[in-house]
């Protein structure tokens, strides 16, 4: 990447929040004009329920991308965390299990997520293997263990209060959405205001120079993948409570969408640059596109295709803007 390129990238990263917000407003207006059903409470609350799953997984993907890597194991790590919780609940009587069982299960779920992330981080930090490969093998491993232990079946039958987490509301806002908002805020603070976040950006740009500056890059890598794993656990628990079941492979199709959402949210594919706010905006745009098209009578698959087209369109626009800004200079 040339010098001028970098300057350009920085400039339109700053304009990114504005650009994405304007686009969001435009499509919201377009869908409201196209269908009176779009701006109704029912649609808004269904959007609010659907967004968190993809959103939580995207947060899990975001930090590894900022560090110049990827975590391809997020969906299956979420599944495995869900399974850990499900088994604990079943061991304590399924629908009759108490709150203590749920808490124990969550602890186990978080342990599974943290362990998965820790192993990835450890291998990446100490062997310098490419994160795509390490997390890919972790994905295959998690999928394998999950399928082996669940034999590909759904696991269901949980206490009512667990379902309430996934389907309930507080003050009219669905609980999963509140969880997502809380997680996004935590992520924002970690990235912008902590040593860990600072180190993640730095090593995403140049890991050797970061190590020379006296930042422990190995520790940072291990922590960042562990954080990613923990966020997978949150996603796994929310998915369990929302569907009242766990199946290995659930949410599999989200994997590449999370990467797509990050790129859409102006995260630099090479690492080092990107923020939580534009990524959340990108997620909302994807959700609005899906719900809007759904109301207009289309299905999920068409929106999947449109997400892809949308990503290409945004990248082409960024390219055109870059070309244009060279010309006028």
């Amino acid at each position: 990447m040339t010098k001028t390129n970098r300057k350009k990238i920085k400039r339109y990263m700053e304009g990114e929040v504005a650009g994405l917000s304007i686009f969001l407003i435009v499509i919201v207006i377009a869908f409201s004009l196209a269908s009176p059903k779009f701006l109704t409470g029912a649609n808004l609350s269904s959007m609010a329920i659907q967004l968190p799953e993809l959103g939580l997984l995207t947060l899990a993907m975001l930090i590894p991308i900022l560090s110049g890597g990827l975590n391809l194991s997020i969906t299956y790590t979420a599944n495995m965390s869900g399974l850990a919780l499900a088994w604990t609940l079943q061991a304590f009587g399924g629908p009759e299990a108490g709150v203590e069982a749920f808490i124990l299960g969550c602890v186990l779920a978080f342990s599974v997520g943290a362990l998965s992330g820790f192993v990835i981080g450890f291998v990446v930090a100490y062997t310098k293997a490419h994160p795509i490969l390490v997390s890919l093998s972790m994905m295959i491993l998690m999928r394998g263990i999950g399928e082996f232990m669940s034999h590909g079946k759904d696991i269901t039958g949980f206490p009512q209060f667990v379902q309430n987490i996934g389907q309930g509301e507080i003050g009219g806002i669905p609980i999963p959405l509140l969880v997502f908002i809380a997680c996004a805020i935590v992520w924002h603070i970690i990235l912008s205001r902590t040593r860990q976040g600072f180190g993640t950006y730095m090593l995403g740009s140049n890991i050797m120079a970061t190590a020379y500056s006296g930042i422990s890059t190995k520790r940072n890598l291990i922590i960042l993948y562990t954080l990613s794993g923990l966020m997978c656990s949150v996603a796994g628990i929310i998915m369990l409570s929302r569907f009242n079941s766990v199946r290995v492979g659930h949410g599999e199709s989200f994997l590449l969408i999370t990467v797509l959402a990050c790129f859409l949210g102006a995260v630099n594919p090479f690492g080092g640059f990107g923020r939580v706010v534009p990524v959340v905006l990108a997620l909302i745009i994807l959700q609005v596109l899906t719900s809007g098209l759904n109301i207009l009578g289309s299905n999920q698959h068409l929106s999947t295709a449109l997400w892809g087209i949308f990503l290409i369109a945004v990248m082409v626009l960024r390219w055109a803007w870059w070309r244009f800004s060279i010309k006028i200079k």
Binding site: L256, N299, H301, S303, T304, A305, G308, L311, I312, M315
Partner: peptide
């Protein structure tokens, strides 16, 4: 000038979405 992983993740979704649709 879009990097390959971005392009192919996008076309992955486009191909699959359109195929299923």
């Amino acid at each position: 000038r879009i990097i390959s992983i971005v392009v192919t993740i996008a076309t992955f979704n486009i191909f699959f979405g359109l195929l299923m649709f």
